[in-house]
Design a binder for these strands. Structure first.
Lengths: 269, 269
DNA sequence: GAGTGGTCTAGACCACTGC
DNA sequence: CAGTGGTCTAGACCACTCG
């Protein structure tokens, strides 16, 4: 692949100055993303070595390296020196720390336990349809579950999933599966969550939630609405969690990269 | 600088296998960080070009480049093609978006307005002392301020600062300064915030806060506690904000780098 | 046109893993 | 030991900015 495949120097006469210049390593990155999205490379498995990819694509190893660097920074790939480069997986326990930002107020490192309550099929209302980019009336699945830390209820989640992908989800599957919810989605439904947007507010506890969490009706709860995205920025989950923040808090870090990589990504997808 | 300055191949006999191996570009990164921390390179100013740094340090340009890459990913430096590499500054309006994660529920892009209410000197209690790594009784400064969006009050902040650095802060300075709070800290006190940790909870509104925000006493507010760090992971601000989330919400993105770069950084500082 | 950052290459060597 | 990712180099050329 010489540097002429897509737009580098294609339009030099009277088209436009350089509208969507895409360096070689970005094109390689796109090719790698295709393999990931298509499932040709499964989560947890090793991808070909850098040198093999370099010869396969006809570029230098440094160029492949830069493509993989970005995918690793986005947590889509995982490099392990001496072993290889692996497709990231929610089976890896480190992954769950990224998506559940709840930490105990008083140190410690408790393990979360998920207790599925209900699971049923429904039709998308206007709000869910908008969030999941569906049409109103499209089939969806709804899950309600409780999250406990050391046996104490802390979070009530209501989770909305597109029926086209998760139609066969049942309460039994949720109860029987060992591992996180996203692990189940990845293993049983071939859908991998790679990114999420969360919107947080403080709301009063309604009657039924208050009972489930063991707090007074009307007491303040943290409302966390999340849209999760899979490859190609496709929204595949919308959920609202109500968090009791008496013994836990939502932890966030500010100041590292973020917008930079987001911006970069708009070009590649 | 040949690859022998610090630990690369120094201990090969019977010391230890490779306890704290630090590649060349990390050593360069440390040198660059020293210049930033010392104030030799001021916020907003350009640093020397990559090729000049390369000859100055006696390494290849690629090595300097990799060091700068990491600093840029951490938002300490800002690259601008064709112009140079610049020290990041809170004067740049893009910076404020990183630290104030509040967005209107109904789209739009309102501008925040900060209204200083009080500013006084006090002595550190046990909690503030712990957060700012001070001794109990050390002088501190406390600021209370209101944040408005389109004229409506949304946030009440109480801000605790070490007196050793901010001793001369006054309400007049806060009122007269044009620009964000961190912009003022950077310009008037030479202290640049580069990172922060936030802990979020839902709490009931106390009487005085409720009045300031125009909500009912006891109604749910979002409590945001933040510790901000300057160079060398030195904590230089602790604040608690109470957010009214009737018309706004706290927005967060999950899934990009983060822990990776944090981990890397432990070695360099 | 000169100077800057951005891309790409080819090759050497180092550090880590596992057979 | 072979194979992988990680570092470092030197040099070429491209894209962008500005005087």
């Amino acid at each position: 692949m010489q540097n002429s495949t897509v737009p580098p120097k294609g339009s030099s006469s009277a088209e436009s100055p350089s509208p969507t210049f895409s360096p070689l390593y970005r094109q390689i990155k796109s090719l790698l993303l295709q393999r990931l999205e298509s499932g040709e490379w499964q989560p947890g498995a090793a991808i070909p070595s850098e040198s093999e990819l370099a010869t396969r694509f006809g570029v230098s190893q440094g160029t492949v390296r830069k493509a993989i660097d970005e995918l690793a920074a986005e947590n889509l790939l995982l490099r392990r020196q001496g072993k290889g480069t692996f497709v990231a997986s929610h089976d890896d326990p480190r992954a769950s720390f990224r998506f559940l930002r709840l930490v105990p107020l008083a140190g410690g490192n408790e393990q979360a336990q998920s207790i599925p309550l209900e699971c049923w099929r429904a039709k998308a209302g206007p709000e869910v349809a908008r969030m999941l980019e569906l049409n109103i009336g499209d089939p969806i699945n709804i899950v309600r579950r409780l999250l406990q830390f050391s046996g104490k209820p802390v979070v009530v989640d209501e989770i909305y999933l597109p029926g086209s992908t998760f139609g066969t989800l049942t309460l039994e599957m949720l109860r029987d599966f060992q591992g996180s919810l996203y692990s189940l989605f990845e293993n049983r439904f071939g859908t991998r969550m790679i990114r999420a947007e969360e919107r947080l507010r403080a709301v009063p506890a309604d009657r039924s939630t208050a009972e489930l969490l063991g707090v007074a009706e009307g007491s303040p709860l943290l409302s966390v609405e999340r849209v999760s995205f899979s490859y190609g920025d496709k929204p595949v989950e919308w959920r609202r969690g109500l968090y009791s923040t008496n013994d836990h808090c939502y932890f966030n870090e500010i100041g590292w990269c973020r917008e930079k990589i987001v911006k970069l990504n708009r070009f590649v997808l």
